[in-house]
Amino acid sequence: MSKDFNPRILTFACNWCSYAAADLAGVSRFQYPPNMRIIRVMCSGGINPNYILKAFEKGADGVLISG
């Protein structure tokens, strides 16, 4: 794998915890790598396997579920 591999990571973040945390990171002006794209979900329990597979089908290199 080349050193400058920039993976595209899709994140499903729970509205009530990790999305709030990501929001707080933004408000506090913390920097984090732009490889991560966030989709807010109302509950991480509502994620089904096909969300993850679809992300890979559409070109994501990794999927992070946080909740």
Partner: peptide
């Protein structure tokens, strides 16, 4: 059925994985 996951797996195989 099964949230469509098996059709997605098929689509991923068609794209090449």
């Amino acid at each position: 059925s099964h949230h469509g996951q098996f059709h997605t797996i098929t689509a991923i195989q068609a794209k090449g994985v």
